[in-house]
Amino acid sequence: MNAPTTPVTILYFAWIRERVGRSEESLVLPAAIATVADLIDHLAERGGGYASAFVTRRTIRCAVNQEFADQSAAIAPGDEIAFFPPVTGG
C-alpha cells in the first residue's frame, strides 16, 4: 500500500486532453477523494479548461491502471488514472 503522499498519475486523451491543456500530471490525492467520480469533481472545480473538459460527465470514459473502469471505481495513491472520450478506433 502506497503512502497517502504518493501521487496518482492522471492522463488525458483526445478532446479531453485538448480542453485540459496537458496530457499528463501528478497529483497527491486529498483524503476525501476515494473514487474516479470524486476525482472528476475535484478536477472540475479547478475551472477553466478542466471545467470545460468534465462538463458532460456522461460522455467521459476512464481507466484505472490501464483497465477500463466505471466512475464509481476506487482509486488509491500510486494509481494511473486516464480520462478519455468513447473510443473510435478500428
Partner: peptide, 30 residues
C-alpha cells in the same frame, strides 16, 4: 474488428482541407 472498435483505446480526429478538424464521435452502430 467489432471489439477493437469499442474496446481498445484509440481516438480518431478528422482534419479538413481548410485546416479545421473534429474528433470523431463514437457510433451507436459500433
Amino acid at each position: 474488428i467489432d471489439w477493437l472498435k469499442t474496446k481498445a483505446p484509440f481516438w480518431k480526429r478528422e482534419e479538413f482541407a481548410d485546416g479545421s478538424g473534429a474528433w470523431v464521435d463514437a457510433r451507436e452502430a459500433d
